[in-house]
Design a protein around this nucleic acid. Sequence first.
DNA 1: TTGGAAACCGGTTTTCAC
DNA 2: GTGAAAACCGGTTTCCAA
Lengths: 369, 369
Amino acid sequence: AIPSLKNSTAPSTPAPTPAPPPPASPYKSSELPMVYLNKGQFYPITLQGVDSSACLTATKVKTVVMAVFENDKSPEMQLRFWNHWHARQPTVKQRVIDIADYKEVFSGISNIEEVAFNALSFVWNPSEEAKVYIGINSLSTDFSSQKGVKGLPLNLQIDTYDFSSGTNQLIHRAACQIKIFCDKGAERKMRDEERKRSKRRGKNSNDSLVSSSMGSDCTFFQTLDDHVTQPVLFIPETHLSSLQRMRFSFSRSSMKRLYPDRDQNSSPPSKQARKEDPQRVLLYVRTGAEEVFDALMLSTPTLSGLQEAISEKYGMQKDTIGKIYKKCKRGIFVNMDDNIIEHYTNQSAFLIEMSEVVSGQIQVTLVEV
Amino acid sequence: AIPSLKNSTAPSTPAPTPAPPPPASPYKSSELPMVYLNKGQFYPITLQGVDSSACLTATKVKTVVMAVFENDKSPEMQLRFWNHWHARQPTVKQRVIDIADYKEVFSGISNIEEVAFNALSFVWNPSEEAKVYIGINSLSTDFSSQKGVKGLPLNLQIDTYDFSSGTNQLIHRAACQIKIFCDKGAERKMRDEERKRSKRRGKNSNDSLVSSSMGSDCTFFQTLDDHVTQPVLFIPETHLSSLQRMRFSFSRSSMKRLYPDRDQNSSPPSKQARKEDPQRVLLYVRTGAEEVFDALMLSTPTLSGLQEAISEKYGMQKDTIGKIYKKCKRGIFVNMDDNIIEHYTNQSAFLIEMSEVVSGQIQVTLVEV
DNA sequence: TTGGAAACCGGTTTTCAC
DNA sequence: GTGAAAACCGGTTTCCAA
């Protein structure tokens, strides 16, 4: 029996909760059911519509399956985690979440789209059961290079939108917690927990041996009433241009979350102030008149180091260099600062533009290419 | 009782070995005694000269204490390990090996020098006992970012040179293996080993309980007969310029094995030694017509050195080589310069394209493969 | 030969005695 | 509270039976 997690979309009427919950409060991840998975392994998720008023009218719905962090983590932190993971993958194409694309396992779904690296969507008819096979390609321990520590759980969140009406309204949201292990680590984790549980039972002489005879082979997602919190989608910067060409159906609000300002630093999450990877920084620049790039190796990965390298390469006094801007592929201008230089410019290629805005002061713009 | 490792320099006459060992064969690290240490903790090493003929004549000796990898690892690999470690340190100043600089613990030594990041030296009189406190700042697990794997042992090697005569000859070499742990990991490792040993004893019903009552508090370094193998010293590239100013004596040693020269005499540590040997750069090139790569060894890791190597390999006058470009995998062209050559081409493979753009001027393009 | 379970490994966290 | 020991954690390796 393959460990399977099945999801029952809209298992009952929209208001089964006994007491009215605070409507806008983000849900607590810790209250969600937890499932252990193995990295890269496909698990079936079953979707079925039920007697919800919204579902009755909808003949077509769009469901988005996402792997996101526990929602007590800020978007900035979530993106930092994803970037940490992405930078260590064997290929830049590696996605967080995959759907098995074997023809025989498609069941009642269509229009599969890779919305983000950690999200994919498809369309189905809630009057018929649908089944998809989902795999996760990140380990829960991949978000930190620290050794010997607990992995980070993710939320597997499933949002469903009314796709038959023109409104495209979010009509259902459900989630569960997942922890992703190496090899057959999920099975070992369950074994170890069972072992510990039985040891504790033996000590307590509590013979409730019928209660947990076996972990159920099927986990139900928990329906969420919080339809407000926006999930944080992850798209690596290297893929931005291709994605800009894609039309995808999400609102500005989620777009905003994708690209927070990175220059304002947030406090490191771990008390351990170990620097990430203080590597050498090398960048390639060319003027508009040239066709070939020059290499700038920075003595230090700082604004000052960049000024020094530019002044040396182009034979200027260092102090004649005024402000340095970075023009991103997206078109926006950013004040160059130490963090961008250290973390986001190594091995990048730029067009360099210099103009004397004030007498004796050269303004430099590095245009990302 | 602080776990201490004490070293007895030259514990007997120079030829205590029963059978003549192969003189030039590198010693086996696996046969050296193993000691467990905690990172950043100081351990005493005691040095004492004995009735060796060489020692009798020497009133001053220079001893070099080094942390090096097991000598089955190539110099390239050793430097890669050290760079991996160094790039992840909180500060670029962090050294591998430190000596306690409290005045009160100095005992009979003088002229302390930080020969390399993983080596330091001092002078002492072998007719009196000397004692130094040594600490190691790298974990055995720091040389890989893989989780859950065994750490790499290091060799703590102690070379002693005759410093009273003018010859500065290597008169004694000793080493032991060390494994460096976090926090109190060394003690735990010893506990675990003792536990496992006692469990195995219980199973074998072999009651030799007197044999290993306690791990001895003092470990003797093993004297080595291999006085030929050169230890690999580590100096980060970011420190080269400042070190050049210091007129360093040992830096050439790491390259000794790679490019053996006729200068076979074991060069003693002299303050006014030869010129600094920069990092050697080797790259592989082939023309479109060939199927096999040629190796270009650069005399200096500079544009000029590259021109020289190309001209020699392809039988041209050096001054006929004009501009050299590098075409990156991404497709962009870069003006080749010293920094790229020194830091980003070693062991890389290229297609080489040459074309005579101007009469008597060959333009070279190295296409990254 | 393989695949499933247990052991290994060592950084980290928790526990516990003083 | 403090220091030592044990437990936790999960990637990795070894072991062992079918």
